[in-house]
Deep mutational scan, measured.
Amino acid sequence: ETKSLTLVLHRDSGSLGFNIIGGRPSVDNHDGSSSEGIFVSKIVDSGPAAKEGGLQIHDRIIEVNGRDLSRATHDQAVEAFKTAKEPIVVQVLRR
């Protein structure tokens, strides 16, 4: 079962304390579909994302501050987090 969660993150020394993997390839599949998503791959101990109620590894990131990342490329997702103003509201899907 997958549930949708909304989390609020604040940077600590400029970092949110997690890494992402995935992202849509720069070239779409011929039918326009994509199974890619942006997923949390690593969480830094005691970083902002590790706090209670924070992110978990394998969370799929859907949205950052209202910006849809469900079909974003990896670079677009990285840029969305880099430029996001605080508080950073992150919507994820968690299995």
Rank of each mutant, 00 (worst) to 15 (best):
E1Y: 15
E1G: 11
E1H: 14
E1C: 11
E1D: 15
T2Q: 10
T2H: 11
T2I: 15
K3H: 12
K3S: 12
K3P: 06
S4F: 15
S4R: 13
S4D: 04
L5I: 14
L5R: 04
T6V: 07
T6K: 15
T6R: 11
T6S: 08
T6L: 07
L7P: 02
L7Q: 00
L7S: 04
L7F: 14
L7C: 14
V8L: 14
V8C: 12
V8M: 15
V8S: 15
V8R: 15
V8I: 14
L9I: 13
L9Y: 04
L9D: 03
L9W: 05
L9E: 02
H10C: 07
H10S: 13
R11C: 05
R11H: 04
R11F: 03
D12N: 10
S13F: 08
S13G: 12
S13T: 13
S13P: 04
S13R: 13
S13I: 06
G14R: 05
G14E: 06
G14F: 07
G14C: 06
S15V: 07
S15H: 08
S15N: 10
L16S: 14
G17E: 04
F18E: 00
F18Y: 00
F18V: 03
N19H: 12
N19S: 15
N19V: 05
I20C: 05
I20T: 05
I20Y: 05
I20Q: 01
I20E: 00
I21A: 15
I21Y: 10
I21H: 08
I21D: 12
I21S: 14
I21G: 09
I21N: 10
G22P: 06
G22A: 15
G22W: 09
G22E: 14
G22H: 15
G22V: 13
G23W: 05
G23V: 06
G23Q: 08
G23M: 09
R24K: 12
R24W: 07
R24D: 14
R24E: 15
R24C: 14
P25E: 12
P25Y: 06
P25S: 13
P25Q: 10
P25C: 11
P25V: 09
P25W: 05
S26M: 10
V27C: 12
V27Q: 14
V27I: 14
V27M: 14
D28K: 10
D28L: 10
D28I: 09
D28T: 12
H30I: 10
H30V: 10
H30P: 13
D31W: 07
D31I: 09
D31R: 07
G32I: 12
G32M: 13
G32E: 13
G32L: 11
G32K: 14
S33D: 14
S33E: 13
S33R: 12
S33N: 13
S34C: 14
S34G: 11
S34L: 10
S34D: 15
S34W: 11
S35P: 10
S35R: 09
S35Q: 09
S35A: 09
E36C: 08
E36Q: 09
E36F: 07
E36K: 08
E36A: 08
E36L: 06
G37N: 02
G37I: 01
G37K: 00
I38S: 01
I38P: 01
I38E: 01
F39C: 04
F39E: 04
F39P: 01
V40D: 15
V40F: 03
S41A: 08
S41T: 08
S41C: 06
S41Q: 06
K42L: 05
K42S: 15
K42W: 07
I43L: 09
I43G: 01
V44E: 13
V44L: 14
V44H: 14
D45F: 05
S46D: 14
S46I: 06
S46W: 06
S46E: 14
G47V: 07
G47M: 09
G47H: 14
G47C: 12
G47W: 06
A49V: 09
A49L: 09
A49I: 07
A49F: 08
A49E: 08
A50T: 08
A50Q: 12
A50F: 07
A50E: 11
A50N: 10
K51P: 06
K51Q: 12
K51G: 14
K51I: 09
K51M: 09
E52Q: 10
E52F: 08
G53P: 07
G54C: 09
G54R: 10
G54T: 11
G54A: 13
L55E: 01
L55P: 04
L55M: 06
L55Y: 00
L55S: 00
L55I: 09
L55F: 04
Q56H: 15
I57C: 07
I57K: 06
H58R: 08
H58C: 06
H58M: 13
H58L: 07
H58Y: 11
H58G: 14
D59K: 00
R60V: 03
R60M: 05
I61S: 00
I61A: 00
I61P: 00
I61T: 01
I62H: 02
I62E: 02
I62V: 12
I62R: 02
I62S: 02
E63P: 00
V64I: 06
N65A: 04
N65L: 00
N65K: 00
N65G: 04
N65I: 01
G66D: 04
G66H: 05
G66F: 00
G66Q: 04
G66E: 02
G66S: 04
G66V: 00
R67N: 10
R67Q: 15
D68H: 03
D68T: 03
D68Y: 02
D68L: 02
L69K: 00
L69H: 00
L69E: 01
L69C: 04
L69Q: 01
L69V: 10
S70Q: 09
S70P: 01
S70W: 08
R71K: 13
R71P: 00
A72W: 01
A72G: 05
A72D: 03
T73A: 03
T73E: 04
T73I: 01
T73D: 06
T73Y: 04
H74Q: 11
D75L: 11
D75Y: 07
D75Q: 14
D75T: 11
V78A: 15
E79D: 15
F81S: 15
T83P: 03
T83I: 10
A84G: 02
A84Y: 00
K85I: 12
K85W: 04
K85T: 13
E86V: 05
E86W: 04
E86D: 13
P87I: 00
P87H: 02
P87N: 02
P87A: 01
P87R: 02
P87W: 02
P87D: 02
I88W: 02
I88H: 01
I88N: 00
I88R: 00
V89S: 08
V89C: 08
V89A: 06
V89G: 03
V90F: 04
V90I: 15
Q91I: 04
Q91G: 06
V92Q: 02
V92F: 02
L93T: 08
L93W: 08
L93R: 08
L93E: 12
L93S: 07
L93M: 12
R94Y: 01
R94A: 00
R95S: 13
R95F: 06
R95L: 06
R95H: 12
